[in-house]
């Protein structure tokens, strides 16, 4: 049963000459309890896609159904509440509020929901225990390592038992050991029945995913199933093209390798023979103007 359904979703930033097409007619259907890794070069629209799915942003065109309900016309306040109750976010950096302690950070979504201090402290303690951070509950974020910060951020994302977890490059700032720890947490979350969407540059991470979505220039260019435990096929190519070593340089090489190995986006060879929509017209106009 699909929990997320995107139909021709486009997102255009800016006006006039300075427009950027961040998403172009994206069609995506995600079932409950999928673990989706999203890969693609920088600027390909991964974050924009996460923000649209996470109700932080509205698509310029297209339809978005969350749990079978259209969410396009929902007011900002109502969106905030849906976000609070059904979606958990983990970002690459600056996840925690610096003026709050670890436990206060984790309990914050419950506070916005109106849960009493006693109950939310107890729930937050349980959650911190689950991610192995209960001994740091009275620390402030600047007293933690970046791996520990991500653990706490995950605890906070989980506190409302959301159906969907959205993580935008959660391991982007972490070393291999911390990354593995964090990924084990996401894997656990996935096992408890949540739907996980995780943006990454690291092909290794596709081991945890049941499906990998590749993006380029605002479009989904490839969508492949992947057995959990194995690196996805396309992602694998990117690794073994170069030396099979695990260094930061390698990761960077991996990124460019991804660009080489994932299919090019070509407007002429669209998957379906749909009529040209506003987005493509807009893009054409832009090209004309440049000439």
């Amino acid at each position: 049963m699909s929990i997320i359904e995107l139909n021709d979703v486009s997102k255009i930033y800016g006006f006039g000459d300075a427009t950027t097409v961040a998403l172009e007619e994206v069609n995506l259907s995600i079932d409950e309890n999928e673990f989706i890794a999203i890969m693609g070069p920088s600027g390909s629209g991964k974050s924009t896609l996460m923000n649209v799915i996470g109700l932080l942003d509205r698509p310029t065109y297209g339809k978005y159904m969350l749990s079978k309900r259209s969410v396009d016309k929902i007011r900002t306040n109502r969106r905030a509440k849906i976000r609070r109750d059904t979606i958990g976010f983990v970002f690459q950096s600056f996840n925690l509020l610096p003026r709050l302690t670890v436990i206060e950070n984790v309990a914050l979504p419950l506070a916005y929901k109106g849960v009493s201090l006693r109950l939310r402290t107890k729930l937050a303690e349980n959650m911190l225990e689950r991610v192995g951070m209960d001994d740091k509950k009275y620390f402030y974020p600047n007293q933690l390592s970046s791996g520990q910060i991500q653990c706490v951020a995950i605890a906070r994302a989980l506190i409302n038992s959301p159906k969907i977890i959205i993580a935008d490059e959660p391991t982007g700032n972490l070393d291999t050991t911390s990354s593995r720890l964090i990924m084990e947490l996401f894997s656990d979350i996935h096992k408890t029945g949540s739907t996980v969407l995780l943006v990454t540059h690291n092909p290794e991470i596709t081991r945890y995913a049941s499906r990998v979505v590749y993006m380029r220039d605002g479009s989904v260019v490839l969508d492949e199933k992947s057995a959990i435990g194995d690196i996805a096929e396309t992602a694998k190519k990117t690794i073994y093209k170069k030396r099979p070593k695990k260094t930061i340089d390698d990761d960077l090489a991996g990124i460019s390798a991804i660009m080489d190995s994932i299919p090019q986006k070509s407007p002429n060879k669209k998957q379906t023979t749909k009529k040209k929509t506003k987005t493509t017209k807009l893009r054409k106009n832009k090209i004309k103007r440049k000439k």
Partner: peptide, 12 residues
């Protein structure tokens, strides 16, 4: 901070 608060469900 405001962005984080909103992302975890704070209303305007």
């Amino acid at each position: 901070e405001i962005g984080i608060r909103k992302s975890i469900g704070a209303t305007n």
